[in-house]
Design a protein around this nucleic acid. Structure first.
Ligand SMILES: [Mn+2]
Ligand SMILES: [Mn+2]
Ligand SMILES: [Zn+2]
Ligand SMILES: [Zn+2]
Lengths: 139, 139
DNA sequence: ACATACTTTATAATAGTTCTAAACTATAGT
DNA sequence: ACTATAGTTTAGAACTATTATAAAGTATGT
């Protein structure tokens, strides 16, 4: 057993999730990365099947992603209105988004400064600010 | 025939869309308003049926909304990842969004100022900036 | 090893949306 | 006004993402 794997097992146990081989594999795919990972369920399944030559059932992938989201290890992203996207960066942050390629890229908080924020409607308060910079190919 | 109706007929014709009674009715529901209207297809159908006591088939409502979007009279909004929302404000603008009530409210451009914008990835340019101010009930 | 609660899985169900094809209708040409 | 035609509406089927079901499998405490 690798060090990385042992680490995921410990983290899963600490979260009250049994470290099954499916969950450990999904941890490796999702969290063993340099950069933030943005993905859809179908993309995740493709990676597991092609790169890791393992088959995890559709229901389990959904169950696991939702379990990780509930535990705060994944954030669901509201981009596009057809399929769900998830983000391994669970902090409040901004994105570049290419509508054509449907690619999301994280932006460092310090790269964006909002000078003026609007007054929220009566009885409501601002909980979070998310900026999407829509990008496209330069010609 | 009312003045308003005649106006929609002219606009539909100018857009190359035949002014059917279904399209005229949908125009009235969508565009005969003081404020920007944010809606889902099912909300739109409910309004047509309850407030106007008219039945327009589901397929026609979808067809019409998409036709209007293609002509630039509606904008599709990427909020939530389950159902599609549309916006009668087709300009680039920012929103308040209450995740709990799923309510969208437009923000005047002058109410938001972005001081610092990030450098886009190589080969890409920023096409649009959209800020979502997530709001919730104040306690 | 055993009991048990948790997990995985194939499959069915659900929900939003799009497709299909037949009936209907607006419109241009006569 | 009549007709031909292309555009439109419609009910229902098909499709796709997601969630529910329930039976088989597995991790874990004793
Ligand atoms: Mn959908
Ligand atoms: Mn969906
Ligand atoms: Zn992100
Ligand atoms: Zn708006």
């Amino acid at each position: 057993m690798s060090n990385i794997e042992a680490n995921y097992i410990a983290k899963l146990r600490n979260s009250g999730l049994r470290p099954t081989k499916q969950r450990i594999k999904i941890c490796e795919v999702l969290f063993n990365r340099e950069k933030t990972f943005h993905f859809s369920i179908s993309e995740l399944i493709k990676i597991i099947q092609s790169q890791h030559n393992q088959k995890i059932s559709l229901a389990t992938v959904y169950n696991t992603v939702h379990a990780f989201r509930k535990k705060g290890y994944l954030k669901e992203i509201s981009i596009g209105n057809d399929i769900s996207y998830f983000d391994t960066n669970t902090s409040s942050h901004h994105h570049f988004y290419d509508e054509y390629t449907r690619e999301l890229i994280d932006i460092d908080s310090q790269e964006v400064e909002i000078k003026k924020t609007p007054t929220p409607p009566a009885g409501k308060k601002i909980k979070d600010i998310e900026v999407t910079f829509k990008i496209s190919k330069k010609f």
